[in-house]
Design a protein around this nucleic acid. Structure first.
Lengths: 339, 339
DNA sequence: TATGAATATGAAAACGATTTCATTCGTTTC
DNA sequence: GAAACGAATGAAATCGTTTTCATATTCATA
């Protein structure tokens, strides 16, 4: 493996000059520059990243924390984050916490050991006070998930509004018995949606019914389970708000399998606007989240923080959500395929 | 930021001894070991990764190449790879080639610049002769995708068999006009499936009809498009083999929307056994791929190659595929939900 | 009681880059 | 014609580890 020293020897120049050529520094004569470039080509020389990282105190790597990547919402987030990072010349390390606080803390050491220049948290498994100490080692940016105590840049979506518009839509369809279904007790995203949910209910003079609340639904299978739990209630809900399209799809699938009709027997609204919402029959009413924009912003911010080295600034960037009405909540005029 | 030197000074010992404690080397007295550990704790010392990488010529990072992560097949692959890598103490960098040969070559420089210890290719966008030169810098392992010319370890699935069993299943249902639908001209995975497809046809004395071939279908939208292309043919196929559940779902969704019945008017078989196969109505017959096992094996292999430093060995590990019959290809006895 | 291990420690040389600080030329400028 | 300046180059320090030697001590063994 050729080193800078080899190039220096071959050209009869010093390492300094070679380095100047590599980094496009001024004060190198055109003659020597060419000489160096030729020698580098000839030797197949390429600078060693570890050496550069050590000397420059910079790895050009970011870490992205997510619970699990197979959740399509997070897949999309990873996709957008990787592309944005690449544009800034950064690589992306994936850290799947799998909802484990220990794993999360463990991955945090990437920042402490300087293996990455910054961390983007798209999920939070620990109390902020446990994460805060890592701020002294590098920037942390919250993306999607958030924490009011956290004194760091936060890029997020207006989840209260999201919960509100989805619920209001159900109320407008005349529903009064609306179940609430979400994933994650710890998540502030889920908590915010619940606030929006309650706000919409309140506007219609309705109160939140704890028996209608299911806060442990993440997957398709959870949706199926929740459907049965709902149907087992003495007063069955006529509509359900869910925190993810996966769960919504699970509920719908199980309902249909059991001979129920959607939305006649049960109106369902999902969240995320994933691909499945247009594949199921009926298609799923959902809330669209501008994931790409959010990811890009998060990368922009963290790159800036890496440069300025000011990490403990609480800036909040909020993007809007949008209700997308499909067949799982409104009458059959959209059910062309149900013939 | 505390360095090893600081720990040395605080304890009055040499850097060597501190290093010995860090790396659990023998010949350190219990007394000094404790002293060092206390000092490290007190200073919040943690070894600097870049320095270690430089000195050890090892980054403990792997790169995984995929076309795009939002394809659920690749999400699952990434998930499993990340977890397997973590178990071996490696981090995972995601490289989305987005089907671009240039991007792929560019990411390959991670190996050349020693930013990663090894590369797992789950998709290939260049001819092998373009990738081969990188072998001198570190191990490359093929996972899922493969290339007969490539003299490197390959972990793959028996795609010929996959294409065969899926097609044979359609033939057994009495179909004779079967369309073929896949993604990727370059991909050997797709080519192998086509071979299996043709093999099954041949067993039934049928020949491959080029008019029934659609080799540019990746997404849901492609499935929808292909459906219309098929229906525009003078002799419409009665069944279709697809290379992914996404495409199958797109075809089914569009067919239903247009008033066709599945499988009566068109039987559809997917590939990958993704979650949607159980959500659509009808559910989708598909081919299950043991992604997790494949990913784990790939990581095991590359970790071994990193250690042994022998990269140009052609070993092939093949895992079996399994047909999963659902409602999109067989009669209505499974259509409980169509009531 | 000398001898050779085994144990315990440290000084200094790597690893491969970048940067600071000199130094040497020309070329202006007064 | 001396002083000042800009361009071009290099020697050596630096980033923070690990490893190779060398050395010193202890301990068992012949």
């Amino acid at each position: 493996m050729a080193t800078i020293e080899d190039v220096a020897k071959l050209t009869g120049l010093s390492r300094t000059t070679i380095s100047r050529v590599i980094n496009n520094h001024p004060y190198v004569s055109e003659e020597k520059r060419k000489l160096v470039l030729e020698a580098m080509e000839k030797l197949g020389y390429v600078p060693n990243s570890s050496a550069r990282s050590l000397r420059n105190q910079k790895t050009s790597i970011l870490a992205l924390f997510i619970p699990r990547i197979t959740n399509p919402f997070f897949s999309e987030l990873v996709e957008a984050t990787e592309m944005a990072a690449a544009e800034h010349g950064y690589q992306l390390i994936i850290c799947q916490t799998r909802y484990s606080p220990e794993k999360e803390l463990n991955y945090m050491n990437l920042l402490k050991t300087k293996q990455v220049d910054g961390v983007i948290l798209a999920s939070i498994q620990n109390e902020w006070k446990k994460l805060k100490p890592f701020l002294q080692y590098g920037p942390i940016v919250l993306c999607n998930e958030f924490d009011d105590c956290a004194n760091v840049p936060t890029v997020r979506l207006d989840q209260v509004y999201g919960g509100y518009i989805a619920t209001k839509h159900l109320l407008e369809q005349g529903h009064t018995k609306i179940a609430y279904c979400s994933g994650g007790y710890r998540s502030n995203v889920a908590k915010s949606r619940e606030i929006g949910f309650k706000k919409a209910l309140a506007e219609y003079k309705l109160t939140f019914d704890e028996r209608y609340a299911f806060r442990d639904a993440f997957h398709i299978a959870d949706g199926k389970r929740v459907f049965h739990q709902m149907m087992a209630l003495s007063e069955r809900p006529t509509a359900v708000f869910t925190g993810s399209d996966e769960v919504a799809a699970g509920i719908i699938s199980e309902a249909l399998r059991c001979g129920y009709r959607i939305p006649e027997h049960l109106a369902v609204v999902g969240f995320d606007n994933q691909a499945i919402t247009e594949l199921t029959n009926p298609t799923i009413t959902t809330v669209h989240q501008p994931v790409k924009q959010m990811a890009q912003k998060a990368v922009d911010i963290i790159v800036e923080k890496i440069q300025t080295k000011r990490y403990d600034v609480q800036e909040i960037y909020e993007f809007p959500l949008q209700l997308i009405v499909r067949a799982s909540t409104v009458g059959s005029e959209l059910h062309e395929s149900e013939a």
